[in-house]
Write a protein that binds this DNA or RNA. Structure first.
Lengths: 217, 217
DNA sequence: TAGATTGTTAATCGATTAACAATC
DNA sequence: TAGATTGTTAATCGATTAACAATC
């Protein structure tokens, strides 16, 4: 039975399920039970069944789950086949790293714009996209209507940039800067990748290596 | 009163507290109450006081918290002044982005080695560090005894690399590859930065923009 | 002192785990 | 059919919030 309000914890486990299902498929496996998947992933079979049951009934009693079908269902829930588009704001090292190495297509996204404010990169070609000047941003957002902007510029400019993007009607932001965007009162969706937070968390567990958990996200 | 077992949720909030305290200090503020901090951060004052009370008594009744002191306490808990060292494994775009832009020092880390397997980058200088060949890794880990290795190489090689590092006695791994490292049976500490998971979570909330929460990590 | 705010205990809420009838 | 495994309800566990005495 589908649930109306789905917890954030459940949502963040979905991409992880997807990774494991992918790996099983690559290993030639086509069917799995919640207990086997739980054993592999280090979580309980109960949790897996509860999680899936938020969205529908994807298994078969006495059989388990067909991996291909389950994967498709989860991809559907995450909206991976929506053909979304993204702008990258900031063509520095991090922006280039994403453009060059991140599998946007596999995640249902297509890069359709790269912007920077530095005169020397504007006009150059990175990964098949011509870098445009940041002054063209608002026009471009209104014209191309990307689903998200990826903030890979210095943190100092992040909030001003977010404001411009939101004003131009952008629905989502993938934030790689080390600041929390001030978005109260807007309905933009923000997902943060805070490197510092992650490293500091690692630092904490290093300190307490004997006592704490050994693998945390 | 200090608590013996501290939940992961509490730990992951500590870096976020630190960011807000920093911002307040930069704004010239020196004192704050749990209720004011809660209002700014969008959490309850109760949660803030509960979180801090896991580690000690950092405030003063009737007054609140001295921001400088509170910040120092949290930095201490996270082990930020430990003078930790790190190797980067993979001198591609992402590795260079971290070397060039990430404030390791502010997070208590110092880069002491960069490794790659590609002949053309080995021997070159990146951010003041000479890139060494991956074959020298084990020797270097034993000699320099870094606290962590930062995996910024292709995911396909991640598990083999993690195995080598663990065998050489490395305590921690900051994993930027899109795979879950198989570390069962070891006592290495792993912290993951899974870009894909983050983007897929964003994708989910874009789909359900009207109903879901608007700012999630 | 009076007002404010902490640290902590108790109450509530939500998430995870266990159990089991339904059924493939 | 018998065995296996789901989806779901109930029980447990843990995390968040509320309340308040202690005290600056």
């Amino acid at each position: 039975m589908k649930k109306s309000k789905i917890s954030h914890n459940v949502i963040t486990r979905l991409p992880r399920y997807l990774r494991y299902l992918d790996e099983l498929l690559r290993g030639g496996q086509h069917r799995i039970s919640s207990s086997e998947l739980g054993r592999i992933m280090g979580i309980t079979a109960s949790q897996i069944r509860q999680d899936f049951s938020c969205f529908g009934e994807f298994g078969q009693q006495g059989y388990g789950y067909t991996i291909e079908l389950l994967k498709q269902e989860i991809e559907g829930i995450l909206g991976i086949h929506r053909g979304r588009t993204a702008f990258i704001i900031g063509a520095g090292n991090l922006g280039r790293a994403l453009i060059g190495n991140f599998p946007f297509e596999k995640n249902g996204f297509k890069l359709t714009g790269v912007f920077d404010r530095a005169g020397d990169v504007v006009g150059t070609d990175i990964g098949g996209l011509k870098v445009r000047h940041i002054d063209e941003l608002e026009t471009a957002v209104r014209d191309a209507a990307p689903d998200i902007a990826i903030l890979t510029m210095p943190g100092g400019a992040a909030n001003a940039m977010a404001g411009r993007l939101i004003d131009a009607g952008l629905p989502g932001i993938w934030n790689f800067t080390n600041v929390d965007l001030k978005i109260a009162g807007t309905d933009v969706i923000v997902q943060n990748v805070h490197f510092s937070d992650s490293l500091q968390t690692l630092s904490y567990y290093l300190e307490r290596a004997k006592a704490g958990p050994e693998d945390e996200d």
